[in-house]
Design a protein around this nucleic acid. Structure first.
Length: 124
DNA sequence: AAGTTGACGTTAC
DNA sequence: AGTAACGCCAACT
């Protein structure tokens, strides 16, 4: 269970964020996923934008690998050169992921989730 | 209550 | 390969 700062009101949306966070947590080092992929896996098809929102309100505080989530094109979602984009690129590089022009080759490093693990994680 | 805003995705050039 | 035009949906004005 996640307890924390910016998540206080509107508990019905909170459940959505929980699902998203739990799913993102499963992405292993060296692999990445897209916002839409996370939404689908979390049982929230069509809500890719909500994934970005959820990651934004999380921050780094509870061990959430937010930097392993990219656009469906493989692009880092932040404006190139921005502080956040640079931080994300650095994190990816530190895991051995090749980043060229703020983009990775999804074909090489895209996460393929273990379904049993996913279902278990979403039980809570 | 209507309009705007995104850490998005797909399609059509 | 890059881009523009949509479509999308919860949150926020």
């Amino acid at each position: 269970m996640v307890s924390g700062s910016k998540v206080n009101s509107k508990n019905h949306t909170n459940a959505l964020y929980q699902r998203i966070w739990q799913t993102v947590r499963l992405i292993p080092p060296g692999k990445v996923a897209s916002y839409g992929q996370i939404a689908d896996l979390a049982g929230l098809p069509g809500r890719a934008r909500l994934v970005g929102k959820a990651l934004g309100m999380a921050g780094d505080e509870w061990n959430l690998p937010w930097y392993r989530v990219l656009r469906s094109s493989g692009m880092i979602a932040f404006p190139p050169g921005s502080a956040t984009a640079n931080e994300q690129r650095a994190q990816l590089l530190s895991e051995g992921i090749v980043v060229k022009n703020n983009r990775v080759r999804l074909k090489d490093v895209q996460w393929r989730p273990d379904l049993a693990e996913l279902l278990f994680a979403l039980e809570f």
